[in-house]
Design a protein around this nucleic acid. Structure first.
Lengths: 396, 396
DNA sequence: GAACTTTCTCCACTGAGTGGACAAAGGCAG
DNA sequence: CTGCCTTTGTCCACTCAGTGGAGAAAGTTC
């Protein structure tokens, strides 16, 4: 199939595409209820969309009491590629135009191997998905990378954990290799987009998403739009001081949140505890696996290990301490906790909540839900698909 | 003069009014250069504005090499009232439609006396300005109050330092008393609007304004618009923890920024130092004035008093510590320091800068100016006038 | 004073969008 | 089955925002 190249010609068409994306197949009449256009005008714009091939007819709709209407839907052959590059693994997924995941694969990897090696892997994963019959090609791709991005150009800038990526023209390079439009963003921002599109944040306009993985970052959504800051580094909360005169951090300061709690820090503390003999559970696991991860700490805590529980609680306290400040400052309507460490579950959530509710002002916390993300490992790729679809479903 | 009641009929007219407000008198041709409308259409809209009386003819413009053009300008008889209610004083000013201050008075007062008493004072001050011939009436008024506001309704919510104001219908009451449209906002947000309109933030889209007065607050501007948060309490940074296990704060927690540095805290610490004899300069001033304020500390520091300097430095360090976190999170293009404590000047600024540049990430601080506000005590009233003018100069 | 600029006005034309009339297609009560 | 009501879709005349060119008016420069 030849790939779609059409874009909506005006804001009406863009709006209609977004309604069809988020609401599925719809009749002209139902669309008319949502767009504040006369039926005549709406019919014209729908017809034009049908001409472009972005939208296709989809049989008769269920009757609403009168003449039955003909449904339209987004072209079911459209395919988006969502790529979520983490510090230690990549997720690649294929979605249809309604952003439903048709296929999803994950592969371990090390970002520090640099963009060339990583994109070779990404392309091979995309090829695999294509080969399995899920897609004959891609109409657009969204890419998330674990560091700040100059968004308009789609280029990583000064990413601390990604040496070799600074200034690499991700957008341009991938656009060439994939032969379709590409948008690049920070992985945490994409997670926020994902939770906004299909997760817990569907109805909220101002919210924060705190992603605790190998590092810690925060996605900021203001008025429904991702806020990226002046240089694209907004939400970089990993190096906010959580513990005065605390642990030495790689950034040169002491007591950074990331030095005290993150996938990496937790693994380090757990190993320490195991070696010092304060936790038999962790020691067993260390011996069995040859190393410890956040998952081991979660399992040990679930098994009743007091040291593991303490590590989680202490981490939650530090995180909550920082989040409390952000809540006072930003007064969000929702805080979402996500990332690899989410496996620590409600022990972590409880510690964070306690700290935030204790430290922030009542007016800001009064009606503030603090919840775990709903989408788990798919948040990033859904957000990536959403990113490129927002781009393609807006006037050229 | 009868007051203007007209509002722009469409976005073009609104745009034109804003251009005339911010750029002063202008010819149709010059306006045409800025609005992306055909000359014909532009002439029509200008004529309509002339009909409403919002805009008036203003003689011939300077020649640009051809036929001389007839200038238009905002009606010079339009008057806005800007009111900035602080914790311990009120500022009231009259501006023309171009937001130039025509008259400005300040009066000591205590917000805790409640809205009725305070508004009696405000109305008498407004009457005084009117009596002096600066205005025959007001076309709109902006009001700033030192606490969170439910913005759409113009009602203070749960203001900690303003008992008795909770839920008081400020907007409605004042609109009745003044007989003109009124908008209400947090005083810090207005300071941000002021600095954006006529101060240091004219060209920046994303910035923070930290106001250190009796308390501490922060105005947040995202994409050129003030961000107020979900419940209107965004920017309430006075109770972010700056010093772990620090001083007891009125809010119940320990180590809040406001408990360590603010007009009130500084006066308290200075008095303590004077009484303990560690600072002869401050002791002299205490004896002379019967009390100490931030201004005394500034004077003592200027006179070389080491204790006073230490107080400023320590306060700047705490403030910088908190701001550093906000900078990492928000990645602003500018940070403005303002409020009563600005009198401490460059000693304070230096301490804040040192701390922020040390603690935040290079990508966020790389090109980040941290400066003092340009407008001093007029920032609030200018912001107030700007608030109501933005409201009135937008389509009804 | 001639040639060139700039400003302003007028006007025919385009194209988006509206809303009413009407046809097509269904459900429901008797 | 037959009217009658509802919903959906199409058609069309009409309104109105906005464009862009022609040309007059009013300057400047040489």
């Amino acid at each position: 199939m030849r790939r779609m190249t059409a874009r909506p010609a005006n804001t009406h068409q863009a709006r209609l595409l977004q309604l069809l994306r988020d609401g599925g197949p719809n009749s002209r009449a139902q669309l008319g209820d949502q767009v504040d256009l006369s039926r005549s005008k709406l019919a014209v714009e729908v017809d034009r969309l049908l001409e472009t091939g972005l939208v296709v007819a989809d049989g008769l709709a269920a009757s609403r009491g009168g003449r039955r209407s003909h449904n339209v839907r987004l072209n079911p052959e459209l395919r988006f590629l969502g790529v979520d590059i983490g510090a230690t693994s990549v997720d690649v997924a294929v979605t249809n135009a309604e952003l439903e995941i048709l296929g999803h694969i994950n592969q371990p990897m090390d970002v520090r191997e640099g963009p060339v090696a990583v994109f070779e892997l990404v392309l091979s994963m995309a090829a695999k998905l294509r080969a399995s019959g899920l897609a004959e090609g891609f109409d657009g791709a969204g890419i998330g990378v674990p560091g700040p991005v100059r968004f308009p150009e789609g280029v990583p800038v000064a990413p601390p954990i990604m040496p070799g990526w600074d200034g690499f023209p991700v957008r341009e390079a991938l656009s060439q290799d994939l032969g379709c439009p590409v948008m690049v963003d920070n992985d945490v921002n994409l997670m926020a987009l994902g939770e906004q599109h299909a997760g817990v944040a569907r109805t909220v306009h101002d919210f924060l998403v705190v992603k605790i993985g190998t590092g810690i970052g925060c996605g900021i959504v203001v008025g429904g739009d991702v806020y990226r800051g002046t240089t694209g580094s907004a939400g970089d909360i990993g190096h906010i001081q959580a513990v005065p005169d605390g642990r030495q951090c790689a950034c040169g300061n002491r007591g950074c949140l990331e030095a005290h709690f993150s996938g990496a820090a937790l693994a380090r503390d757990a190993t320490e505890a195991a070696e010092q003999g304060t936790s038999p559970e962790l020691a067993n696991r260390l011996e069995a696996n040859g190393g410890l991860s956040a998952a081991d700490v979660a399992a040990a805590a679930a098994a009743g290990d007091a040291t593991a529980l303490d590590l989680i609680r202490e981490g939650g306290r530090s995180t909550g301490q920082v989040i409390a400040g952000l809540v006072s400052f930003f007064n969000p309507g929702l805080v979402v906790i996500g990332g690899g460490v989410t496996g620590l579950g409600h022990n972590l959530l409880a510690a964070i909540r306690t700290q935030v509710y204790r430290q922030s002002l009542p007016l800001a916390t009064g009606n503030l839900p603090i919840v775990l993300g709903e989408l788990g490992p798919t948040a990033g790729v859904i957000g990536a698909a959403r990113l490129i679809s927002d781009h393609l479903f807006s006037p050229a």
